[in-house]
């Protein structure tokens, strides 16, 4: 059954516990840069959550020239580390440029939803922020609204909340 992480930018306090837990689960060490979820706080007080949204048409999977990406049972994008050559085609194909390359690590970095039980959602709920919540996947193009580029979105957030034109 497809699950989805509902994210609320206004509830996020940018504590970055999700990054610590994500890298502890996937890399067995604390490595914020290799975390699947990233929090960008470009303007103070307006954090932007950058995380894969699992689009319906999966432009990254379609664009991969080496068939290294596939779709799993929960709707997540799986990366085959042996086939991936880190050419970067999925980054350009993704409307929000979410996949990332990290020096010193083989393969693209895309959220795999932790087999249906994401660690980031668990810790966010445990700490009482509830900025990330696990829901069943909404249908249609709605999810693409959360495909964000941190720079543009933080300017939009700033303009919306303060009413200023930046």
């Amino acid at each position: 059954m497809p699950v989805w992480i509902l994210r609320d930018f206004l509830k996020c306090t940018s504590c970055k516990l999700c990054e610590i837990m994500c890298s502890l689960k996937h890399e067995n060490t604390v490595w914020p840069e290799a975390s699947r979820i990233r929090i960008y706080e470009i303007f103070p007080g307006f954090p932007v959550i950058s995380l894969c949204v699992q689009c319906d048409d999966y432009p990254c999977v379609a664009s991969c020239p080496f068939q290294a990406l596939s779709v799993g049972q929960h709707g997540e994008v799986l990366v085959d580390q042996d086939k991936c050559t880190m050419c970067g085609a999925c980054i350009t194909a993704c409307p929000g440029n979410i996949p990332r390359i990290v020096p010193g690590k083989q393969g693209m970095i895309i959220c795999d939803l932790c087999n249906g039980e994401p660690e980031c959602v668990k810790i966010c709920g445990e700490m009482g922020y509830h900025a990330l919540q696990l829901v069943s996947k909404p249908e249609g193009e709605l999810v693409k609204n959360y495909l964000v580029k941190p720079e543009e979105t933080s300017i939009k957030l700033l303009a919306k909340i303060t009413g200023e034109d930046v």
Partner: peptide, 17 residues
């Protein structure tokens, strides 16, 4: 871009939170 220094005991780190 690198990783942080290795943790002595990852389980106690999670229990710390």
């Amino acid at each position: 871009y690198g990783r942080l220094p290795p943790v002595n005991n990852p389980e106690s780190l999670t229990s710390l939170f």
